[in-house]
Design a protein around this nucleic acid. Structure first.
Length: 256
DNA sequence: ATGGTGGCTTAGCCA
């Protein structure tokens, strides 16, 4: 089973790029973030024409997550528990085949010390608590998404320069590590322990040409899932297409 | 360099 995650930065603006990649890569499951649309405006037809089913969770203009799958999407849940006031569409989870999958869009945090940064750290606590519940049910679990955290110095283009800045602040890295400490595995690091690779490059300047990127999109796997992990890779060539997302797909294959 | 780029929605926010 091939499972991918991709922050597309608007599914409507990115539709041709997403469909091209889908036709080439043919994943069984694609976990989308930043769809930036209400569900009624989600372009469902081109996915259906390709034999994919959809579960979408959106809001106007911002955020938005979705699960795209070749097989039936069952027992979905929209949103992360732990804060009834939180209306942002950042989490969707469902069962596809014998795997529980989730698409998560962790808040960016904007500025260190801001309200948005506090929301980001609190979101990580809620994600950790919920993942713990799923692990206690012995789920074969894959949580893919834009975590907006580069975990280690190997995951940023200039660790010294970026230390303490958004997406590479020690408080964020500590929150990300609490997920690993539950017993979740970073699929990319498990299969490629020392590869420097990025999943996001800023739109500004010549970030991609200079390879000034960060690895902030991750597939986290439960023990039963990582037992079946075969390959994990980042499709960085997708950043070079016309009108790209600032993120590229990250995918893994699980042995059936 | 308080800029730079992009999307949504329409000038300001969020990333």
């Amino acid at each position: 089973m091939k499972i991918a995650t991709w922050n597309v930065n608007s599914v409507r603006a990115r539709l041709p790029v997403v469909l091209d990649w889908l036709d080439q890569a043919a994943p069984d499951v694609l976990l989308l973030q930043e769809t930036k649309t209400v569900c009624a405006q989600f372009p469902t037809l081109p996915f259906a024409e390709r034999g994919y089913q959809l579960a979408t969770f959106g809001e106007p203009a911002l955020n938005g997550v979705a699960i795209v799958a070749k097989h039936p999407i069952e027992d979905r849940r929209d949103g992360l528990p732990g804060d009834t006031e939180d209306r942002e569409a950042r989490y969707i989870e469902a069962t596809v085949g014998d795997v529980r999958v989730a698409s998560v869009y962790v808040p960016n945090g904007t500025t260190i010390g801001s309200d948005r940064f506090a929301y980001k750290l609190a979101f990580f606590d809620r994600l950790r608590d919920h993942a713990q519940d799923l692990l206690e049910q012995d789920a074969t679990l894959v949580i893919g998404g834009d975590y907006n955290v580069a975990p280690t110095p190997e995951d940023v283009y200039d660790a010294a320069a970026l230390e303490g800045t958004i997406c590479y602040h020690p408080d964020e890295r500590a929150k990300y590590r609490t997920l690993l400490n539950l017993g979740l595995y970073d699929g990319f690091r498990t299969t490629q322990p020392r590869t420097h690779a990025y999943s996001w490059w800023h739109y500004q300047g010549r970030s991609f040409e200079l390879d000034h990127g960060m690895r902030i999109d991750h597939l986290l796997l439960s023990p039963y899932a990582v037992d079946r992990l075969d390959t994990c890779a980042i499709d960085d060539q997708v950043r070079a297409v016309k009108q790209p997302s600032d993120h590229v797909p990250v995918w893994c294959t699980l042995i059936d």
